[in-house]
Design a protein around this nucleic acid. Structure first.
Length: 424
RNA sequence: GGAUGGGUGGCAGAGUGGUCGAAUGCACCAGUCUUGAAAACUGGCGUACGUUUGCGCGUACCGUGGGUUCGAAUCCCACCCCAUCCGCCA
């Protein structure tokens, strides 16, 4: 969320930003409620001060009557304070709800518009493949090599679940191994994270569990939810903590399962691994100082490029437009891999996404840092980026690397873990 | 899951109803002394919100949430977490 004072002092800026991002907001209502809230707060504090003063006089007063009068006065003041405090708390909750709905500010370079207005920034080193045969999609390739079992997945867990088999398992693990090793070599601390997290943590990161449109599976009779991404648990690691500036930037890479209901994606359901309820992902996450986050964001994007160059997958990088940014994101880059089996003649399909959330998540999660020699604390900036989501990466690898004889070439960097250079 | 003991400022640790935002020690910062350092001594040293041009002042915060009271770190209730032991278990 944004800072309350900032919103009030920069009402026009925030309003324009909401319009650009296609989010409804009522800044005037916030300003109005906050003025009222402040009045109640000041009244409550003043009444409390009077009550404290009264309480302090009681032990000093020797006369029983005077004492009793003071006790009555104190009681009365506390009651008045209570009433004012309650009004304040209700207003604050209402303001909080309104503020939560306001998206982050937007990086000046972000293009305005929707999904089709993203700007193509660059392309990967690997060229789109040209086939002198009719290329198969990953589902067909999987059937040929006995890599997946979608029927059993549906039987056991429902549509959108699947089993990986044989070389797909090796490939899945190889992608995890490669990503973790690569990132560990670039200063990221490998972390294997919980797959469930408490509701306040999800909310802090910007997810809304238990709503009608929620993407999140929740566990009945608990405050736990299956995580949609390790971003939740990595960001949550420092919730409520104050660290020192010397610890920043703090770079983590998390390995977790990801669970998504894909509610609202009906009709966009696709065969195969592309849109599923569970997958495995290696996720980058960074806490930085405010002046470091832009550079860190570019760095994350470039690491994603290095990973997909190493996987020998053709891709493009896009700078996502305003309407397509999630609430917490200040700027977002996606890598879209070329997937020859998607659509009629192949399509770009999102394989990674990296967002700079500036202090939006940190403010909700209360992640702060202290600068040595300076008074007070500041909110950290948070960034996240996909290193490898194994399902989608596998689609890109299988479909791009298929050979005329039906076999599939394993990218060099994965061969040590897959244990062969060719599937089939 | 059962039993017991705990959760207080960066750390250690005192504090069982008012004079407690909280002793003391360590750490840290500044200064005195010193060629320099150490030691010693002196002073400072939490966070958030509100208020003020500023010095400052006010309010809240002793695991979390409720309750009792004019007044709670202190009493009561619930929950969470930690330690140790027992049980169970990959």
């Amino acid at each position: 969320m944004l800072d309350r004072k900032f919103i009030i002092q920069n009402a026009d800026l925030v309003r324009d930003n909401c319009v650009r991002r296609g989010t409804a907001c009522d800044i005037d209502r916030i300003i109005e409620l906050d003025a009222e809230r402040l009045t109640k707060l000041q009244l409550a504090e003043d009444l409390n001060r009077q009550a404290n003063e009264t309480s302090q006089q009681i032990p000093k007063s020797k006369d029983d009557d005077a004492r009793k009068a003071l006790i009555d006065k104190g009681r009365d003041l506390r009651h008045q304070k209570e009433a004012s405090q309650n009004s304040h708390d209700e207003l604050e909750a209402e303001i909080g709800d309104l503020i939560s709905a306001i998206p982050n500010l937007t990086h000046p370079d972000v293009p305005t518009g929707g999904e089709d207005d993203a700007v193509e920034i660059s392309f990967g080193k690997t060229a789109k493949p040209t086939f002198d045969f009719n290329p198969l999609n990953h589902v067909e390739l999987g059937e040929q090599h006995d890599l997946f079992d979608f029927e059993a997945g549906a039987r056991v867990s429902g549509a959108g679940f699947y089993y990986l088999k044989n070389a797909a398992v090796r490939l899945d693990l190889a992608l995890q191994q490669f990503a973790i090793s690569f990132l560990a070599g670039h200063g990221f601390t490998p972390i294997s994270t919980p797959d469930l997290a408490l509701t306040p943590i999800l909310k802090g990161i910007g997810f809304t569990p238990r709503g009608p449109e929620t993407q999140i599976y929740s566990v009945e009779n608990t405050d736990l939810n299956l995580v949609g991404t390790a971003e939740i648990t990595l960001g949550g690691m420092l919730a409520g903590q104050t660290i020192t500036d010397a610890e920043l930037p703090m770079r983590l890479c998390g390995l977790s399962h990801c669970f998504r209901t894909e509610a609202g994606a009906a009709g966009r359901a696709t065969k195969g691994l592309y849109r599923v309820h569970q997958f495995t992902k290696v996720e980058m996450f960074a806490f930085t100082k405010p002046d470091q986050s832009d550079a860190e964001h570019i760095r994350m994007r470039d690491l994603e490029c290095e990973i997909f160059d190493a996987l020998e997958v053709p891709y493009r990088v896009i700078d996502t437009a305003t309407g397509d940014l999630g609430g917490p994101a200040y700027r977002k880059f996606d890598l879209e891999a070329w997937m020859p089996g998607r659509g009629d003649d192949g399509q770009w399909g999102e394989v990674t996404s990296t967002s700079n959330c500036t202090d939006y998540q940190a403010r909700r999660l209360n992640v702060r840092f202290k600068t040595t020699g300076k008074k007070g604390t500041q909110f950290a900036h948070t960034l996240n980026g996909t290193a490898v989501a194994t399902g989608r990466a596998m689609i890109a690898i299988l479909e791009n690397h298929q050979q005329a004889d039906g076999r599939i070439a394993v990218p060099k960097v994965l061969q040590p873990w897959v244990g062969c250079d060719m599937i089939g």
